Simulated assay, not measured.
Amino acid sequence: MIPVFDGHNDFLMRLLREPARRAALWLEGTGEGHLDLPRMRAGGFAGGFFAVYVPSPVPHDAPDFDAMLRNPPYAVPLPEPVPYTDALEVAVAEIGHLLWMERTGTLAICRSVAEIRAAMAAGKIAAVLHMEGAEAILPDLDALHVWHAAGLRSLGPVWSRPTAFGHGVPFAYPSSPDTGDGLTEAGKRLVRECNALKIMLDLSHLNEKGFDDIAAMSDAPLVATHSNAHAVSPHSRNLTDRQLAVIRDSDGMVGLNYAVGFLRPDGVGETFTGWDPVLRHLDHLIGILGEDRVGLGSDFDGATVPADLGDVAGLPRLLAALRDHGFGAALVEKLAFRNWLAVLERTWGV
């Protein structure tokens, strides 16, 4: 079985919501959601980026988000910023759950590619601690060093809402990703400090001006851990051909997002059968980025995924579809895990 190293999952958010059930949700496997240890092992999931994500409060008069996604066109307003103290509480709790997972002996938090390879060889899930949105960091950046000491090695300055550092792209279809201002001065300091600490910067939820700001100043490969091709599906969360070329020229990488609303050309947020949208995005990404700069970035436990995939246990079906599409064995391995390990070596230097 080909191992899969994945660019993004939201499993820690599930544990945040049901902490008393974490042993069942992780170790035993209840069949809920997309991820648990038994299904990971069944599907060949060897590791990936585990996101620390702070949910936005939902106002009592908020529109039905899921209904909007099922009926394009739509433009979901950006949520309000999350206060630092609220974000800090959630981030500490989610990292605590990841540390508990490590204490069970089934997972290792990895700070280098050598550690990822060692965890994979030992049959442990190789986890990269990632922060999706930097609300748990103040502009003085002291907390960034705290999180780095705890194992943080990947960070997205924003989720799809404003922070002290920049502006997230809204969920909108059809829409350009050019939706607002770029990085703040604090955001530019954050980029420089992440470069100094060798923390990978994730561009997935940034708007286009923020993307360009990081591209202009970062000395690391540009990476979008869970994004797709705007030319195939013109969603604001997807990357334009120009952005893909910038990532290519930095020797960076894009992880394919399985969220159906970003995959489907019609933008409808409902699942589908077959693999055509997945293959269309991969063909387009590979056509611009090349075979060495594309991987998988599932968004498991944070999105609706294709029906024929179902959950993490369906990864062998996805890889079989890639082979049936004409991708050779070497390319399938690159997409499954080798490209991720290579870009992390280029970013971390270890």
Score class of each variant (00 low, 15 high):
Leu35Met: 11
Gly44Cys: 07
Ala46Phe: 07
Pro59Asp: 04
Asp36Ser: 06
Ala46Ile: 09
Leu27Asp: 10
Glu32Gly: 08
Glu32Lys: 12
Pro38Arg: 12
Asp36Met: 02
Asp36Leu: 01
Tyr53Phe: 15
Phe49Thr: 11
Ala42Glu: 15
Gly33Ala: 00
Glu32Pro: 01
Pro59Met: 03
His60Asn: 10
Val54Ile: 15
Gly29Val: 09
Pro55Tyr: 14
Gly48Phe: 06
Ala51Phe: 10
Val54Ser: 12
Gly29Met: 07
Phe49Glu: 07
Phe49Tyr: 13
Tyr53Thr: 11
Pro59Phe: 00
Val52Glu: 14
Pro57Gly: 04
Pro57Tyr: 05
Val58Lys: 15
Pro59Lys: 13
Met40Ala: 12
Val58Asp: 01
Gly47Met: 06
Ala42Cys: 03
Val54Lys: 09
Thr30Tyr: 07
Gly33Trp: 08
Pro55Ser: 11
Gly44Pro: 12
Tyr53Ala: 00
Asp36Glu: 06
Pro59Cys: 06
Val58Ile: 15
Pro57Gln: 02
Asp36Ala: 01
Gly48Val: 10
Gly47Tyr: 03
Leu35Thr: 09
Glu28Phe: 08
Gly31Leu: 06
His34Glu: 00
Val52Lys: 10
Ala51Asp: 07
His34Arg: 07
His34Val: 11
Tyr53His: 15
Phe49Pro: 00
Ala42Tyr: 10
Gly43Met: 12
Leu27Pro: 05
Ala42Asn: 03
Glu32Arg: 15
Gly29Asn: 07
Val52His: 11
Phe49Asn: 10
Pro57Ile: 05
Pro38Ala: 00
Val58Arg: 15
Gly47Thr: 11
Gly47Glu: 06
Glu28Val: 13
Glu32Asn: 03
Pro55Asn: 11
Phe50Pro: 03
Phe49Gly: 00
Arg41Asn: 02
Phe45Cys: 06
Gly29Asp: 05
Val58Gln: 09
Gly44Lys: 12
Ser56Ala: 14
Leu27Arg: 10
Glu32Val: 11
Pro55Cys: 08
His60Arg: 15
Phe45Tyr: 14
Val52Gln: 15
Ser56Glu: 14
Arg41Gln: 14
Pro59Glu: 04
Met40Val: 09
Glu32Phe: 02
Pro59His: 10
Arg41Ser: 01
Gly44Asp: 03
Ala51Pro: 12
Thr30Asp: 05
Pro59Arg: 13
Asp36Val: 02
Thr30Gly: 04
Ser56Ile: 09
Leu35Val: 14
His34Asn: 04
Leu35Gly: 02
Arg39Ile: 01
Thr30Cys: 02
Gly47Cys: 08
His34Leu: 01
Gly33Asp: 00
Pro59Tyr: 04
Val52Arg: 13
